[in-house]
Structures are given as structure tokens and as C-alpha cells.
Design a protein around this nucleic acid. Structure first.
Lengths: 185, 185
DNA sequence: CTCCTATATATGTTATATCCTATATTGTAT
DNA sequence: ATACAATATAGGATATAACATATATAGGAG
């Protein structure tokens, strides 16, 4: 469902092709809503059926025709309705936490390696976040007002805040393992 | 995939029925890996085909037979292999952040209401977390060593740390809205 | 006396998502 | 000379999940 609205959101900035949308996804919302290329095309087809978007073929020499999608009035209404509606709730799914939950099965050495792996992953993600502003820079000028940009940056702030909390947690666990504060079986 | 290992993990404590598993899920890992009842039964069927679990029918008077599943040697090996393997990575999906990303379409009043909704949700989740230790208490005695209990509590710690970071973020946004620090269109 | 909850399992349908592959052409790098 | 990346779209297969419903019985609340 959120994919539908994310696509409508991007189309509300300006008309785009599936290919364009994929690129925009990959530099912006991918960090909290990754989208497969084939999924974008299929969703575009469905949104067309629902009357939320319309398509115009733009012929090109040499390359396949571009199918440029634009949002319709009902589409814009649906988008604003969802945005202004109740806060979206989602069931969190975290495979890493499942590993932690049952990590008592492992030895202290294995657990230490696991948490050091987590910490490394989290640092890598924080490093990726650092590059986001530069990546969305081009789109910012082309597409967004300062107001829109502000909200884009809020999602980044949220990602950073969460990842820092996760890293601090992982580091505290590493400390406890090293200090022998983990109960033995 | 994680559901498979979560089920194997619980069965590694002691044999259980699908019904038992559902109850254990709902008081423990639900906060980071919710599982549908029908999904548990289907996964149990698949794990049986794979030879990771085996089932024994226990006849009961008056009620349907219990199908008690226990983990096999290959199942335990697969579990430990996954736990000790590379850190599980998962693509995060956050519908609320999609709403934030496109929230520039809304008025300041609507945005304020939205973030106050978020903050209320987060406080409710933190309140739920407070009750988790009491909920898993019974299982703790019956099933887990202090070592296992330690790792259970680590997942709770992680949830609390993340949710506090989220709440601080939401509150800081609310402040900025109230102080007129949000750029206008 | 009726309704709800608990115990216990299972299927059908739909939605969603992932992965792989196919098609077609141009430009760039090795 | 050849391979790879970019532009552009799309379908098949598979996996996962969500939601509703079905079966069957006992016990307690109102």
C-alpha cells in the first residue's frame, strides 16, 4: 500500500516514467521503503486501472518509447487523504533481533563475533546516510521546495537517530560480553 | 525465513504444538517478528517436509488431538548454523516515514496533528514494552536458562532504545513546528 | 439459555514482494 | 574486439503474508 502512495507522491512532483521513479526511489526512500523495479511497473499498471495515474507514450528514436505517467485529480485526492489520515502503523520485522533472541545457543566467542558484525553493519549504514544529502541534491533543485526538502531531511534524521541508538546498544552488549557479564548456561 | 528459525528456536527449548507456539510468539518475539496463526501451521508443515521437525499425535478426550512437534538433529544443526552465520540483514520498511517524506503536501496544522499521533503511538509502544517482562515471566521459569533470558532481554532493550530515539525525534519535530521553524511552500 | 473464550488445527483467497529472465539499443571502458 | 553500464519496459515463477473462515468441544459469564 505504501508503495502506491510513494509513487503517487513522486508523481505529484512531476510526471515520470517507471525508470525515473526507480532512480528516485533508490536515492531517497529506499532506506525505509525499498522498491523492486518490476514492482514499480506493476504498481503503475494497477494505479492506471484505478484511475489514479494516466500514461502518455513519448516516442523516442533508437530506444523504447517512454511511458510518462502523471497523477490525476482522484490520485492526488487519494494521496492527500492518506497523508492527512491516521498515522500509518507497520508491524516491524527484524531478522537480526530473531538471531539475538536465540543467541543463547551460541558460545560467547560466537556471540561476540555476531555483535561485532552488527556494529560493523550499523556503522556502514550510518556512513551511507551521510551520502544521502548529496545523492538527493540534484532532485532537490529540480523538484522540491524548501518545505518538501525539510521533510525529506526529517526521514534522514530519523534513520540516523535510530541507527545511533542501535549502535550504542550493540557496543554496550560487546562491552558486557568482554567483561564477562553474560550469564553462562 | 526468520519465521522458520524462530519456530526452530522455540522448539529447541521443548516440544510444542502450533497453538503453544502462537502463544509464545505473542508474548515475546511479536514485537519484532509477528506471526499469523495460519502461517505458523503452514511453516510447521514445511519444516516437517524438510526433516527439521517431527510430529507426534497426542490423543485427547473431548478436544482435537494435539500435534506435538519436536526439533530433529538436522533442524538443530540448521538453527545453530543460521544463528552463528552472518548477521541477518533486513530491508527496513516504514510506512510512517513514507508519510513524513511527502508531508510537505499538508498544512502545518495537519503535520502537527500527524506528529502528535506518532508520539502518542510511540508512547503506547513504550508502555507495552514495560509489560513484556511480566508476560514472558511464566515461560522463563519453564523454559529458559539465565543465559537465554539475558538474550531475550537484549531484544527488549533494543526495542526500548529505538523507540526512545523515535520519540525524541517526534518531539523535536513538534517543537520545530510550534516554533515556526518549518519552511513554508 | 445464549454468547463468549479457550483449546486445537487447517484451508482458501488475495495481496505483496522478490528473483530471474527477456527484449532492444547506445555509449563507454578495457 | 568485447564486455559492461545505462536507458526503458515487462512477464513468469516463487515466496511470504494477511485475512477470513471452517471444524469441533468445553466451560464460564451474563
Amino acid at each position: 500500500m505504501s508503495l502506491d502512495f510513494a509513487i503517487l507522491g513522486f508523481l505529484s512532483y512531476h510526471p515520470s516514467t517507471g525508470y525515473d521513479l526507480k532512480k528516485m526511489f533508490d536515492v531517497s526512500v529506499r532506506h525505509f521503503w525499498p522498491a523492486d523495479q518490476s514492482q514499480i511497473y506493476r504498481t503503475l499498471a494497477r494505479l492506471t486501472e484505478q484511475g489514479y495515474v494516466e500514461m502518455e507514450k513519448v516516442a523516442q528514436e533508437d530506444r523504447p518509447d517512454r511511458k510518462v505517467y502523471h497523477i490525476t485529480q482522484p490520485g492526488l485526492a487519494a494521496l492527500v487523504n492518506w497523508l492527512g489520515g491516521p498515522p500509518a502503523m507497520d508491524e516491524p520485522r527484524s531478522a537480526p533481533l530473531v538471531q539475538v533472541f536465540f543467541a543463547g545457543k551460541l558460545s560467547d566467542e560466537e556471540v561476540l563475533a555476531k555483535f561485532e558484525g552488527f556494529a560493523a553493519m550499523m556503522r556502514a549504514i550510518l556512513a551511507q546516510y551521510d551520502q544521502v544529502p548529496a545523492q538527493i541534491g540534484p532532485y532537490q533543485q529540480e523538484v522540491a521546495s524548501p518545505r518538501e526538502h525539510f521533510f525529506w531531511m526529517l526521514t534522514l534524521e530519523n534513520g540516523i537517530a535510530n541507527m545511533r541508538a542501535n549502535l550504542a546498544w550493540a557496543e554496550s552488549v560487546i562491552e558486557r560480553i568482554k567483561n564477562g557479564q553474560v550469564p553462562q548456561a
